[in-house]
Amino acid sequence: MRKNTSPAEGTEGLVYQCRLPLSSATLDLVAGLVRGHLKKIGSRWRKLPPGRIALIVLAVLRHDQRLSDMAGGNDVSASTVRRWLLKVIGLLAARAPRLDRALKLTRSGGEVVLLNGTLVRTRRRTGDENRPDCSGKYKAHGLLFLALTDEKGNLVWISAARPGRSSEVTTARHNKITARLRAAGLGALADLGSTGLDDDPDDPVIVTGRKATRGHPLTEAQKEANKLVGRDRAANEHGFADLKNWRILTKVRMNARHATTLLRALLVLTNAEIHR
């Protein structure tokens, strides 16, 4: 019997195929943005065509594939894949609506939006930079984002990243959400974390449930009102669930500025998948 002492792995790496659970419309959207950008800057060629570049970037965003793995399977360098990724994220984020425009679009379809916050986990920092990202509420390190959805749970706007130790009320006041909702003629439903956010209790635009205290338990009417608010807010959680299907958000390895660009790019991709 002849022994085979040669290594199982040759000089060429092994490549496998993996299904990407996205629609062709999303791929066409990203490929069109890449193609338009190359035409705008007058680029003659790239290592791969725009369709392949879009597919690689979507695989990194959806499955959180390592850049070196994607580079090895497509005969390019990891730095090239990183450059494509950052460029596509920037192109997509530029299409995300800002708060005033998002409220104007929502006003044409309804009179109520849903407000909620979420923590996107990040890598733990070292030294003094570690403390701002530590969230006491979630007992984890991350960045805080606020989002608005319509009554059906479709994301319409996402805020800039704030340190994880920030509260949802502080973040909402930083973005002047109450004043902009009142100017747009819209109301909002929020959870108990936004209690006290509205500065006009006689004419509130942000409706939350009631909190019980040690000496003042909730009445039956207040409990029923909390159930109604929670039932109407359930669609908001569906919007965050759609956003976090992008596995790159499992643990973000970016600073706050780049994380804001990433979340806004994923907002555009999420809406493209929902409304395809």
Rank of each mutant, 00 (worst) to 15 (best):
R2S: 07
T5H: 11
S6P: 00
G10S: 09
T11P: 02
E12I: 03
C18V: 10
R19M: 02
A25G: 12
L27M: 15
D28M: 07
G32R: 04
L33K: 10
V34Y: 04
G36Q: 14
H37R: 09
H37K: 06
L38H: 05
K39D: 15
G42N: 06
S43Q: 15
R44I: 03
K47V: 08
P50K: 05
R52D: 15
R52V: 08
L55I: 09
I56F: 01
L61H: 10
D64W: 04
D64I: 03
L67M: 11
S68F: 08
M70I: 09
A71D: 14
G72E: 13
R82W: 01
R82V: 00
R82Q: 11
R83E: 13
W84Y: 11
L86A: 14
K87N: 12
A93E: 14
A94Q: 13
P97R: 08
L99E: 09
D100V: 10
D100W: 03
R101H: 12
L105S: 10
T106L: 12
R107N: 07
E111C: 11
V112Y: 06
L115G: 14
G117H: 10
T118E: 10
L119S: 02
G127N: 08
E129V: 01
N130L: 12
D133T: 01
K137L: 08
Y138N: 07
K139S: 10
A140D: 05
G142I: 02
L143H: 04
D150L: 00
I158G: 02
S159V: 00
S159R: 01
S159D: 04
A161N: 08
E168F: 02
T170D: 05
R173W: 01
R173H: 15
R180L: 10
R182W: 02
A183P: 04
L186K: 15
G187N: 06
G187L: 06
D191N: 13
D191Y: 05
G193E: 09
S194C: 13
S194R: 04
G196T: 05
D200H: 05
D203N: 07
P204R: 15
T208P: 10
A212M: 04
T213N: 09
P217W: 01
E220W: 04
E220D: 13
A225M: 10
L228P: 08
L228C: 11
L228G: 15
G230Q: 10
N236Y: 00
F240D: 02
A241V: 07
D242V: 03
N245I: 02
R253Y: 01
R257A: 00
A259M: 07
T260Q: 02
R264G: 02
V268L: 10
E273A: 14
R276D: 13
